[in-house]
Amino acid sequence: MTDLSTRPASTRDWLLSDAPSTRRQARLGALYQGWLTFRANTLAMVGLVILIGLVLMAIFAPWLSPYDPVAQNLGDRLMPPSGAHWLGTDALGRDILSRIIWGSRVTLFIVGTVALISPILGLLIGTVAGFAGGWVDQVLMRITDIFLAFPKLILALALVAALGPGIFNAVLALAITGWPPYARLSRAETLAVRHADYIAAARLQGAGPARLLVGHVWPMCVSSLIVRVALDMAGIILSAAGLGFLGLGAQPPLAEWGAMISDGRTYILDHWWVAAMPGLAIFIVSLAFNLLGDGLRDVLDPKGAKE
């Protein structure tokens, strides 16, 4: 037999091969399978496209925005949507479209950092609790339960009140109130694999607890954490916008969608677009995250998929 006959005809066949010959092929194959499942979900693809658009918008904000987002032009204040200002202008004559485009940077920054800090904190606490067991587990889980029982938004409000308003403190407050569900989830995953044979084998090879945790337990938690994070993203956006609306998030003149709604509140009855447009942006982005999250759940967590 020649080499040619065993070589797959195309990249696609290579990826979908039943008998991967290398680890890399197996991994890439699994990824590709997941992508195929995900791609079949139209709504999830819509979500993905919207979010890619959002990221591009944030990256290319200086080139995309027709006006300077902070430049005031009192002669053009509260203009309705028109050819010159597609989404109208606000009370200081600033172009709303430009502010929404620049505001996507703030939104992505907050969501990105919170969605990074909370799960990592939760992963650390949850896996240590599950892996150590005994009193460590008891204490850590008791703390988690206490935090889980708190009203999150009120706690975040009180935290920002104490730390002072600002974008970093808003991120901190959301991260501090957001980690407990991830800790619960990671602990459950850890308990499931804690006594697995492969862990015992690694232990016999002389792996210490830190290495077992990082190299052998964490990878098992990642996919369910990703699903959970994706589903939580919309909630983070809404909370962040809520803090911004209360004047506790990003401070002026930085364009933040929640704060923009708050600016437009005064003019709601006569100049509806000032508040309506940024709200629509928040809605579209969080809807996209929800759609993406549902799609990811179908791929990464078939057990928890739709009833």
Partner: peptide, 18 residues
Amino acid sequence: ALVGYSMPIFWLGLMGLL
């Protein structure tokens, strides 16, 4: 439910008021 999960409540309130 999907829309409810994605809508900023304060914005929906403003629009309702309008």
